[in-house]
């Protein structure tokens, strides 16, 4: 039963991909916002997040940092915000590159659609960053937060392999890569809110954990 459903879903997905890649817009969206963008940015987010605290502990610089008269909340949030801005910069840069490159080859893209898709992707990646930060507070080496955050993100994307509306509602990747938003046919308010909440949860968990952590 499950196998049959999976085969059906796979052929449906292949049909959708063929349909999408048939157009330039669909091709660009599928290549960046649906596939390579999340992969590359998720790795970048995990690397940034995993090293935020664990690297300081590993190198011993945490003692230099925490012996200063600043609260742990400020230390954590400052470091997190720097990574958030780095991710935003990279995401925006990729969006601009898509707009410029598409215009150069004679397929100008919808600026609003690219911008909103870029923001959605960035918010989605903040979830990975937050997750890596949470693990970075828990573990004192960089490798485990990196691996665990990427594994957890991969696990969350499994429901996306089966084209099922109920499962997709629980699939975060479904929200951070919306083709309708890219085309500019709809404003993805629900997706934005879900990605925003998902991004905040791990950070809100990491703050009290870091406050209590003994070094």
């Amino acid at each position: 039963m499950v196998v049959k459903e999976f085969i059906e879903a796979r052929s449906q997905l292949q049909g959708q991909i063929q349909q999408l890649t048939g157009s330039y817009d669909g091709y660009v969206w599928s290549q960046w916002f649906s596939k390579n963008g999340p992969d590359i940015l998720a790795i970048l987010a995990a690397v940034l997040g995993a090293s935020l605290i664990a690297s300081e502990v590993n190198k011993g610089t945490i003692f230099f940092l925490l012996s200063k008269p600043v609260s742990r909340d400020r230390v954590l949030l400052t470091k997190y915000l720097v990574s958030v801005l780095i991710l935003l910069g990279v995401s925006l840069l990729s969006g601009v590159a898509i707009l410029v490159a598409s215009a150069m080859v004679g397929h100008p893209q919808n600026v609003g659609g690219v911008l909103i898709s870029t923001i959605l992707l960035w918010l989605g990646m903040l979830f990975v960053l937050g997750l890596a930060l949470l693990f970075s507070v828990l573990f004192h080496d960089v490798l485990r937060p990196l691996i665990f955050s990427l594994l957890f993100t991969l696990l969350l994307s499994i429901p996306g392999l089966i084209s099922n509306a109920t499962l997709n509602a629980w699939n975060l990747t479904f929200y951070w890569s919306s083709f309708a938003a890219y085309q500019g046919t709809m404003f993805p308010l629900k997706a934005l809110l879900i990605c925003l909440v998902a991004a905040l949860v791990p950070v809100l968990l990491a703050i009290p954990l870091f406050r209590k952590q003994a070094y």
């Binding site: 011993g60 003692f63 230099f64």
Partner: peptide
């Protein structure tokens, strides 16, 4: 703790400076 750290200079046993 913040008041303490504002008035105390601490040097840890490991090198805690940024390389």
């Amino acid at each position: 703790s913040l008041e303490v750290r504002a008035r105390v200079g601490y040097m840890s046993e490991v090198n805690s400076l940024y390389d």
